[in-house]
């Protein structure tokens, strides 16, 4: 059972620098959670639900099937990192206000996917939102309110554009 923490990984997570020494097979999700970054959740572990979604150098990925070594030299953004001075990001505010979070366990992953979508496409139609969220599993909401939340967040961000943290 290899537990030699031999792999050096330097990265920036939510604006904070980390110098990790990890077992070589560590996933990015394991590394983040060990570093007390607990927004990304382990749900399926097979890349089939996106609850572990994070932004890695501008791209949303599943941290559960990304090796931590891939984050060396990279910038990582998670749902916690979207807060600015304690203020919710418009995506988060829309999720909270529309009732898009029920149990909330999938929510950080949805928030990250929505954020990534709105960076690429500030004015998505409903089909584009659904396509963007197509890999995110939610067992509580039936997706009605998460989709509504993303459309609402897009409206708010268009009317008051502000670059989010980690935005390119």
């Amino acid at each position: 059972m290899p537990d030699g923490s031999t792999l050096p990984v330097r990265c920036t997570v939510n604006g904070r620098e980390y110098h990790w020494r990890l077992a070589p097979g560590t996933t990015l999700l394991e590394a983040l959670r060990a570093a007390q970054v607990r927004g990304p959740k382990l749900v399926c572990g097979t890349g089939d639900c996106c609850a572990c979604g994070v932004i890695l150098d501008g791209r949303s990925v599943n941290a559960c099937c990304t090796l931590a070594g891939k984050a060396d030299g990279a910038t990582v953004l998670t749902a916690e990192g979207l807060l600015e001075a304690g203020r919710l990001h418009p995506v988060q505010a829309a999720f909270a206000e529309t009732g898009a979070a029920q149990c909330g366990f999938c929510t950080p992953g949805f928030v990250i996917r929505a954020y990534a979508l709105l960076q690429e496409d500030p004015d998505p139609d409903e089909a584009a939102v659904r396509a963007a969220l197509g890999g995110n599993i939610c067992r509580c909401t039936g997706y009605v309110k998460p989709v509504e939340a993303v459309l609402e967040a897009a409206r708010r961000m268009r009317s008051a554009p502000a670059p989010g943290p980690g935005a390119p």
């Binding site: 890349g47 089939d48 791209r59 949303s60 990925v61 599943n62 099937c65």
Partner: peptide, 8 residues
């Protein structure tokens, strides 16, 4: 796969 998978 999903968008997150396709990004990696």
């Amino acid at each position: 796969g999903s968008p997150n998978i396709r990004n990696m």
